[in-house]
Nucleic acid binder design. Structure first.
Lengths: 115, 115
DNA sequence: GTGGATTGCTTGCATTTTACAAGTGGCGGC
DNA sequence: GCCGCCACTTGTAAAATGCAAGCAATCCAC
């Protein structure tokens, strides 16, 4: 059963997925190559661990992120963007570009990791 | 005095402005030519009036929206995007495009009003 | 110029979400 | 076994949101 959406508007539906202060920051970190829970916690915005766990679950349930067994850190949880999740990167970039152009004091520091 | 930001990351700073479920819907409605309080209320997502008033205030204080005296409806409040506000339209479009491509059941119905 | 409708909010309160701190269970190394 | 790290979960306080009602200022017909 699909939960009822607010409207058929694509903007409203996207906001129901990524319309909060944390989800896109996790996607940013994933795009930058971070994969472990503690790495997301270590980002300068200091997301609370319960919020992080909740957002990761939601991203996985939306098919934007997947868990996998890391080779680099065997036995640890790891997360990465799915192919669908990667399609959000142009959205993320347009947001970052707007911030760089219109909010003073912002600076780009992250590079999107190679596919 | 500027309120402290979470980080100098442009993504985080933009989310502090538009990172919620309502702000971009108001910008969508403004882009579609709506200008009156009641018109935003009438959108299918049914924003609460206190939230709408709060978001309009925040948008005005961020310089993205301005009040003006309407010619069409004299004596009534009216809102419109500022030039800075219009620079958000590419962001809005990238979000709408993503929704159309990746969320089933969404449909584009609004046309951006002419400048 | 008075009554009623409309507009643009504000207020009060219940519900939901978020923030912060602390705690728990699993695993690996020693 | 014991220690520490990691990935969460839980408890609780604070904040944001949702909902309904109310209210002052127009507008408009009559």
């Amino acid at each position: 059963m699909r939960k009822s959406r607010r409207s058929p508007c694509p903007v409203a539906c996207v906001l129901d997925v990524i319309g909060d202060k944390w989800t896109l920051l996790i996607i940013r970190d994933l795009a930058a190559g971070k994969s472990q829970f503690k790495e997301f916690c270590a980002s300068p915005e200091r997301i609370a661990t319960n919020i992080l766990a909740d957002r990761l679950d939601r991203l996985v349930s939306h098919g934007l992120v997947e868990r996998y067994a890391s080779d680099d850190h065997p036995g640890r949880e790891a997360y990465r963007l799915t192919l669908k999740g990667r399609t959000l990167l142009p959205v993320l970039k347009s947001i970052a570009d707007w911030g760089l152009a219109h909010i003073e004091g912002t600076e780009a520091r992250i590079q999107v990791a190679a596919p």
